[in-house]
């Protein structure tokens, strides 16, 4: 299946390029746009893994709604270019070193694992794998408590955001 491999490498290069763009670009607005590209590439990888519902949710909720929130906040704050560190501080030199150390460690853990199934294409799956029906059935039967806890957490986060970002003074003082 050369088609699947080509698709994987295109999506992987897109995901890695988007991730690098988020970190390297100086303007926060361009970082947000790079993250949108990264999320779309990641949705393609989810499709290759037969996770159709997750891929659709990724594009609609993440790349659609959450990124719009980011763009609004960047526009509100006025995304200015971050000035480079005047003196090459310890963090700016050691940060990438630590990240490289984590990368090497994780690759050793992934490739040296005793799980034989890692070197296969995965288990045999039926036709409905990853469909909204299968996910919904699991979510509302086996993982009902997690589903309800997540909805409650979303409510708390929404109320918390309103409390955090509200104006501190009353309306009459502003006028």
């Amino acid at each position: 299946m050369w088609f699947e491999q080509v698709l994987f490498f295109v999506a992987a290069i897109g995901a890695l390029g988007g991730a690098l763009g988020v970190v390297i670009l100086r303007n926060p607005f361009y970082s947000v746009l790079a993250l949108v590209a990264h999320l779309v590439a990641l949705a393609m990888l989810f499709l290759l893994l037969h996770a159709e519902f997750i891929a659709a949710g990724q594009v609609v909720v993440y790349a659609g709604a959450v990124m719009v929130l980011y763009v609004f906040v960047v526009a509100y704050i006025g995304g200015s270019d971050e000035p480079l560190r005047p003196e090459g501080g310890a963090i700016s030199t050691f940060g990438p070193l630590f990240a490289a150390a984590i990368a090497i460690e994780l690759c050793i853990a992934m490739l040296g694992t005793g799980l034989e199934a890692v070197d296969s294409k995965g288990a045999d799956i039926g036709a409905g794998f990853g469909s909204p029906a299968a996910i919904g059935e699991l979510l509302l039967r086996k993982f009902l408590v997690a589903f309800e806890a997540a909805s409650f957490l979303l409510l708390i986060a929404a109320v918390g955001a309103v409390v955090l970002a509200r104006r501190r003074r009353g309306l009459e003082e502003v006028a």
Partner: peptide, 11 residues
């Protein structure tokens, strides 16, 4: 991808 994100958080 995880390590690129970690590098960004650190720097």
């Amino acid at each position: 991808i995880f390590c690129i994100g970690a590098a960004g958080v650190l720097t």
